[in-house]
Amino acid sequence: MAAGGDHGSPDSYRSPLASRYASPEMCFVFSDRYKFRTWRQLWLWLAEAEQTLGLPITDEQIQEMKSNLENIDFKMAAEEEKRLRHDVMAHVHTFGHCCPKAAGIIHLGATSCYVGDNTDLIILRNALDLLLPKLARVISRLADFAKERASLPTLGFTHFQPAQLTTVGKRCCLWIQDLCMDLQNLKRVRDDLRFRGVKGTTGTQASFLQLFEGDDHKVEQLDKMVTEKAGFKRAFIITGQTYTRKVDIEVLSVLASLGASVHKICTDIRLLANLKEMEEPFEKQQIGSSAMPYKRNPMRSERCCSLARHLMTLVMDPLQTASVQWFERTLDDSANRRICLAEAFLTADTILNTLQNISEGLVVYPKVIERRIRQELPFMATENIIMAMVKAGGSRQDCHEKIRVLSQQAASVVKQEGGDNDLIERIQVDAYFSPIHSQLDHLLDPSSFTGRASQQVQRFLEEEVYPLLKPYESVMKVKAELCL
C-alpha cells in the first residue's frame, strides 16, 4: 500500500493539533497551500530580480507567473513527485505547466533550498508574528487579574506546605514575570531571523556568478533584492546548502521555554482548584465526569500541561538535527523538520489560546482563602504575639514557653481530632496574655502579614508589564474561544 493518505478522510490519521486544537490561522501558515504558494512567490521574486539585473526574462513571463501564483494543481504535483521522487522539481514542473512561456526560467540558477529553506524562514517569521500578540493578550488578562487582587491576602506555599502570606495578585505576578520573559525572547528570536537568500547549491553562489558572467556586484544585488522582497532586513552571508540548523534550535528553545512557563502556571491553577481557592472557567453544560456528576475538573489547565510537556520535548529534535548536518548538509534534517517545526508552533498556539481562555474567566473564592488563612495564621502570628507581650512588660522566655504549650495543644486538636485551630481562643482565655487581649485582632490582621506584596504588584505592572504590552494595544480586544 502506498504511503500517505487522504487526510480529510475519517479513515486516515490526522494530527489532533490540526484537527482538534490549533487555530485556523496557525494551521494555514503550515498548510501545503501556504507552503507551495510561497515557493511560487519566491520563484517570481527571483525572476523579477534577475530581470532587473539584466537576464533575458520578459515582462510577459513575469506576468504569467504572477497570474498563476494561486493556480496550484495539487493532484498534478503529487503525481509528479511520485514520478520524480523530488518535491521541488515536482512543483517546478507543475508551475511550468500553467506558465508555459515562463517554464524555462522558473528556478533559474537556484537549488531546492532556495524555495525550501527560504519558505521555512518566512513561515517561522509569520508563525512567530501570530504567537506574539496571543502571548501579549494572556499577559494582559493576567495583569488585569493581578491588579484587581493585588491586596487580597492568601496563604503562600513553599514545598506545598503553608508559608508566609502573600497576595493573590502577587502570586499571579510570578506567572506574568515568566511570560514577559517569554514574550521578550519570542520577539528577540523573531527579529534575529535572517533570510537564507540566493546562495546556490553549497552556499557559494557559483551558479549565479556564472549567470551574471562573473559580476560579483550583481550577485550581491540579486541576494539583497530577493531578501528585501521577502520582507527581511538581512540575509546570511555564510550558508551551506541550507541555512544553519542552529536557527531551528533557537526558535524551538524559546517555544519550549514558553511551554515550561505555561505548565507551571496551569499546575498552580490545578492545585488551587483542589484547594477550592480558584477555578478555571466551567461552562453551564460542561460535564466533569461521566460517573461523578459533582466533579469540576480543571480540564483546560490539564490540557495545557499535557501539550506543554510535548512542546518542551520537541527542542531535542533540532538539537540532534543540527549535530548531524555533515559538511554542507545531509538530508537527516528533512523529514524531522517537516514534523517538529509545525508541531512546535501548533502546540504553542494551542496552549496560548487555551491559557487566554482560562485567564479571561478565572474565578476566585475569597471566603475559602480566608478560612485557610484562619487555619494557619495563628501559628504564624506567634512571633508577633511574643513581641507584643514583651512590649507590655512580659518575659520573652516565659511567653515563648506559654505559646509553645498552647500551640501544641491547638495542633493536637487540628491533627488528632480534625478540629479547627483554636490557638487564639486559648490565648484569649489565658490570664497571662490579658495585657494584649485587646491587640489580638490587630495582630491577626492578614494584611499585616503580606509585606509589600501589593506595592510590588503595582510597581511591576507599571514599570515592566504595561510598557512591554504597549506595541500590542491594537490587538488586545480579541477574545479566545474554545470549541473543545
Rank of each mutant, 00 (worst) to 15 (best):
F30R: 04
K402Y: 08
F30T: 06
K246T: 04
C340F: 13
L209M: 06
A411L: 09
E228H: 14
E283V: 10
A18L: 07
R338L: 03
M181I: 12
L406M: 08
T202D: 10
E60H: 06
I269P: 02
G104F: 14
C98I: 09
G259N: 04
E279W: 06
D398Q: 15
L406Q: 06
V413E: 13
R190A: 13
A322C: 06
L121K: 04
I436D: 04
A273G: 08
S140C: 15
L130P: 03
P378T: 09
E302I: 00
G419A: 06
R404K: 09
D73G: 11
K199A: 09
A22Q: 07
A453K: 03
I62K: 04
P318A: 05
K415L: 09
L275A: 12
K477C: 12
L53R: 00
Q184C: 14
N274C: 11
A102M: 03
Q61D: 13
G394S: 14
F433K: 03
R303Q: 12
E280R: 01
V475L: 13
L469F: 12
R270G: 02
L469D: 04
V478H: 10
G54D: 05
V29S: 10
I122G: 01
S434K: 12
R141S: 12
E228A: 12
P366F: 02
Q210E: 15
S261R: 03
P446R: 04
M65T: 04
V465D: 01
E60Y: 10
M476E: 15
K75M: 13
N384I: 12
L108R: 01
I373K: 07
C305V: 08
F208E: 01
V324E: 04
G418F: 07
L255K: 02
F95I: 01
E302G: 02
V368H: 03
M278Y: 08
V254A: 08
H442P: 06
I373H: 08
L346T: 12
L155K: 02
G419E: 13
V226I: 04
G200P: 01
H442V: 14
A90C: 04
I238P: 03
S306R: 01
P366R: 10
R83K: 05
E79A: 13
G361E: 11
G419Y: 10
D178C: 05
L186V: 13
T154K: 02
D216P: 07
K233E: 07
S140A: 06
L209P: 05
D11T: 04
S140I: 09
L307C: 15
D87Q: 02
L135H: 06
P153L: 02
K402A: 11
A291M: 01
L108G: 04
T382K: 00
G393R: 06
Q51S: 11
T204M: 04
E81G: 03
E370D: 15
T242N: 15
R149L: 06
A235H: 10
F28Y: 11
S112N: 00
G96V: 14
G169S: 05
I106T: 05
Q458S: 14
I427C: 10
T202F: 02
F145N: 13
S9M: 13
Q61K: 08
H93S: 09
Y365G: 07
A453D: 05
L406N: 08
T204S: 11
G393D: 10
Q320F: 08
N421H: 09
Y365V: 11
H400D: 01
N297H: 00
H437A: 14
D445V: 09
A49T: 05
Y243D: 06
H159F: 02
I403T: 09
A322R: 01
I373F: 02
D59S: 06
S323Y: 04
N68Q: 11
D120T: 09
N384K: 06
I373D: 01
W43Q: 11
R372Q: 03
K224V: 09
F157H: 11
L275H: 02
M26D: 00
D191R: 11
E360G: 09
V457I: 11
T350W: 06
S15L: 10
C483H: 15
C399L: 07
L355R: 01
L377P: 02
T382H: 05
E417K: 13
I249D: 10
Q205I: 10
A388G: 09
F236S: 07
F74L: 12
E79V: 10
G451I: 05
L183D: 04
L193G: 08
G5F: 11
K82D: 02
Q408P: 04
R137F: 15
Q325V: 11
P10I: 14
D268Y: 02
E79I: 09
A410P: 03
E220D: 15
R188I: 13
R20A: 08
H86R: 01
Q375I: 12
C399K: 02
F282Q: 00
K199M: 10
A206Q: 15
A77M: 15
P16H: 15
P298Y: 03
